[in-house]
């Protein structure tokens, strides 16, 4: 089995990006929201997507796990194209069963938390493992408890979402996404709906995840977080990625005029 060829293939797969977007276009009616997105995200990388509202960054994030359809282009996760299968020159949308399987590899955290209000914190976390992955409820519970402890909510297992603060709810939502053991985490403005004093606790958890080597794409307005945690920062405007590079490059010496104006407004 372990012939040199396999080793060579193994090395080449580790080098290839975990996520690759190629010329992704999307329309909402006549509105051309994504105008050709090309992007590679390596394993273990943390990428922050910045940009003014309406620049298409959230839409792009939602295309990655096929919550939104795309018009053309391809999004690869590993060696599979997300949402569509190539048949000759056509990209045919995959059957639901396959889309559902592909989504399991990606966790998503929403701006408005979207916890299930009729389930407790722990029930929210184990819902995916038990219902989707058919995990044994007892071991799922144990894992759920340790995940909630990891986000600092070991004492809130049986609280309903409405009994929790926004920051606590968002941390439960992060634990819920982690429970599926995703290869990639997508964060859609995770702190935008929070009171200023609650932003820190969520960012701390996210930083901890980044340090643990999780691959993360984070749509955010938190420039400080991007500077400290991101490996790379991409700036989007008008449905395009205008520049991408290390936080120092993009945040401290932006090349593009739009980036400079945007940063001068938010900093």
């Amino acid at each position: 089995m372990t012939t040199p060829t396999t080793i060579a293939t193994a090395t080449s797969t580790t080098e290839s990006p975990l996520l690759r977007a190629e010329a992704v276009h999307k329309y909402f009616g006549d509105h051309h929201v994504l105008r050709g997105i090309d992007l590679d995200v390596a394993r273990g990388e943390v990428l922050c997507l910045l940009g003014p509202s309406g620049s298409g960054k959230s839409t792009f994030l939602r295309c990655i796990n096929h919550l939104e359809t795309i018009h053309s282009g391809r999004i690869w996760l590993g060696d599979e194209t997300i949402g569509y299968r190539q048949q000759g020159a056509r990209l045919v949308e995959r059957p639901e069963r396959e889309i559902v399987r592909q989504r399991r590899a990606m966790g998503m955290v929403f701006q408005r938390f979207n916890l299930f209000p009729h389930r407790t914190a722990l029930q929210n976390v184990i819902e995916g493992p038990v219902q989707v992955r058919r995990e044994n409820p007892k071991s799922a519970r144990e894992r759920g408890v340790s995940l909630l402890e990891r986000v600092g909510l070991g004492d809130k297992l049986d609280a309903y979402p409405r009994q929790l603060s926004g920051g606590q709810q968002q941390r439960v939502a992060i634990a819920r996404a982690l429970a599926m053991e995703p290869r990639l985490m997508l964060f859609d403005e995770p702190t935008s709906a929070l009171d200023p004093e609650l932003v820190g606790e969520v960012l701390t958890v996210m930083k901890d995840l980044a340090d643990s080597g999780l691959t993360m794409i984070v749509v955010t307005h938190e420039i400080g977080f991007a500077r400290e945690v991101a490996d790379r920062v991409a700036f989007m405007d008008g449905g395009r990625i205008l520049e991408i590079g290390s936080p120092a490059e993009v945040l401290d010496s932006p090349q593009h005029e739009r980036t400079k104006t945007f940063l001068s407004r938010v900093l």
């Binding site: 639901e96 989504r103 399991r104 408005r112 299930f116 995916g128 989707v132 939502a173 996404a177």
Partner: peptide, 12 residues
């Protein structure tokens, strides 16, 4: 958002 959250954890 509830539907999206369910889809995001891999529910059909």
């Amino acid at each position: 958002g509830q539907v999206e959250a369910a889809y995001a954890i891999g529910m059909g």
